[in-house]
Design a binder for these strands. Structure first.
Lengths: 204, 204
DNA sequence: TATATTAAGTGACACGGTGTCATAAGTCAA
DNA sequence: TTGACTTATGACACCGTGTCACTTAATATA
């Protein structure tokens, strides 16, 4: 989190700093963004930057939080408008993000955030179950093994998406176990609950 | 991908290099790992490293691929043993990873991979819908808005997991759209299919 | 107003990591 | 032995980071 000094700043200066940071993080992913560029854009000294933030990660995650807060408010609004239909609201947010990500220049920074490491790691995780995206052989190997009588797919095309879903959820459970230091029992129980939900379906 | 020079190396040297790299990536996340340490551990010159790899990322993702390949074989085996029961096999792999991640010292590197940026980004995404993990107020706000008659939860506790599932899948769809440069129509169609699957449930 | 105290701002600098390159050392075939 | 090619080396230029002694500004105190 930024220091109190940062929050004491005049609005104009604080905003200028954030804009500069956002521009730099839009230009390059976190690992390649440089503080030198941010301070140049914002017109402050290098030393000042370190008086506001612990480092570039600090600034980055603070910006991310600002975006998240905004989007969260939007989600709640949509949830209300949809009379509490969770999936409908989720749908709305997804749509909106797609539009924003493709149009709003200033969201390039969010793209960088999402794409940078996340993508490679999660991709590698998907490969675990499905093989490389376009290697037909690899995916067929899985298909051949699966008993389709046991899963609820109308078309073979749906099968791909079933795998995507299972992978996403499994991945998240792994990340959770690591980041929240859950015991193995807790992690297992959580995973079981979510798998049951997936099996029986989320909506009545 | 490593260069041909790297694959021409004597087995012992190649293995030593990979072990050194894995050790360094276990010590620190990608961004903080240093080539200096890898070459010191492996007993080769800095110049050599650059003759084998484009940079540390190259080495990192190659190691990740080796792990993934191994685990994939395991998944296929389990799928076979479970008579094609997808979810049962997924379960097995999840269990195994939990055990490995908590016991195998040399998998510290996988932990680093998963935790580093992925965790923060995806967490911020979850917050979008649920608010900060332990802020009860934030989560209640969502709960109050949701029409529980429309979703298939037996207990209020299950609700949390429904949200986790929806978030994981939505997040993955966003990442996909970005990384594969899907058109908005494609992305939307994919998302629709997966939401439908979630609604009706994955197993017969 | 003068003075003390606390907060904010600065940029030179030491440190460490990266990627390159000229050069040396092997390998092998003619 | 020579020449052609592949592999190995580490010094070096470059760049970004984080710090620190110091200056300047703001605010409180008398």
């Amino acid at each position: 989190m930024p220091t109190s000094t940062f929050f004491n700043l005049h609005d104009s200066k604080r905003v200028k700093l954030l804009q500069a940071a956002e521009k730099e993080f839009a230009r390059a992913p976190l690992s390649q963004a440089s503080i030198a560029n941010i301070v140049k854009l914002a017109g402050v000294s290098r030393g000042s930057f370190y008086q506001y933030f612990e480092g570039k990660e600090d600034a980055f995650y603070y910006l991310l939080k600002l975006h998240t807060d905004k989007r969260r408010a939007y989600f709640l609004k949509k949830l209300q408008e949809a009379d509490g239909d969770l999936m409908a609201a989720m749908d709305q947010v997804f749509q909106t993000m797609l539009v924003e990500l493709s149009e709003e220049e200033h969201l390039q920074f969010l793209k960088n955030a999402i794409l940078n490491v996340t993508h490679e790691i999660e991709d590698s995780f998907t490969e675990l179950f499905l093989g490389k995206q376009h290697e037909v052989d690899a995916m067929n190997k899985v298909k051949d093994l699966v008993d389709f009588k046991k899963i609820n797919v109308d078309s073979k095309q749906e099968f791909f998406h079933v795998m995507q879903i299972l992978t996403s959820v499994t991945f998240r459970n792994i990340v959770d176990q690591l980041s929240r230091n859950l015991s193995r029992e807790e992690a297992t129980e959580n995973f079981r609950i979510e798998m049951d939900l997936l099996r029986k379906g989320l909506s009545k």
